[in-house]
Amino acid sequence: MLLRVVKDWFSRSNKIERLWLLAKIEFKLRYYENKLGLLWALLKPVMDMSIYYVVFKIILKSDTPAFASFLFIGLIFWNFFLESTTGTIQILSTKKYLYEYSNMNKLEIYISTILSNSIGFFFNLVMFLVFYHFIEIDSIGFTIYNFWVILLFFNLFILSLAISLILSNLYIIAKDISQIWQVFTSFLFFLSPIFYSLKVFKDALPSFDYGNPIAGIIINGRRVMMEGKPPDLELFIWDFSFAFFLLLTGLLILNKLGSKAAEKL
């Protein structure tokens, strides 16, 4: 099924162009419509970071070194995940105009939207690099392991796509899935090693670095970007398999429920 979809895409060469066109328009709609514009995309992680910095460094006196950067990298991974899942629950309803009058493949709608979030992610990643290399005092500088972040991002992309597929298709039969997911993500946020050090996280929640698919990505993200180490391979492979398994589930649900979107929504 997946192979067929991928093959189908490359055989019709305008698909890549179309994905990029839809992603660009989506990005423009999100950021250029409001007064702050693109500035908001850059401001958001900085503001988030400052809040957690005040709480955890100044009030709770966390002893993690380079804490601001530690938070920053965790938050940009998390925010991408949050935007790509919570932000797409109603996608089949808001993007109905794309599939209501033609036999366009719905998967493209998802990929283009998450692609547009990826543009935001890379802006943030560039900001992180600037921050880490020029402002952070405890920076260890550039290492070759930094390039692993591309694969980690790919993993995050698949995970977000998978969960987005599952949620938005469940939305067709259960509209309050968005409220449930909101509660669930705030829970997941506190169960992810975003502001605790890895040791505290592992001691309190053993094996949760495996149970929570986003935890491993954040842990490995810090290893390659800030600790000058290769990723924990076992965790890395586990997270990829986890994401692929969810993606498969998502595609099955898309086939089963998503085909009825035009008549139900």
Partner: peptide, 29 residues
């Protein structure tokens, strides 16, 4: 590819005429 046309065709009201032409054209292949 197929295209269904009745009183409205697949266009987003949030987009400009230009963007809609590009999106629809692209969806049509």
């Amino acid at each position: 590819s197929t295209m269904l046309m009745n009183l409205g065709v697949g266009m987003s009201h949030e987009l400009t005429a230009r963007e809609n032409i590009y999106v629809s054209g692209s969806v049509l292949g």
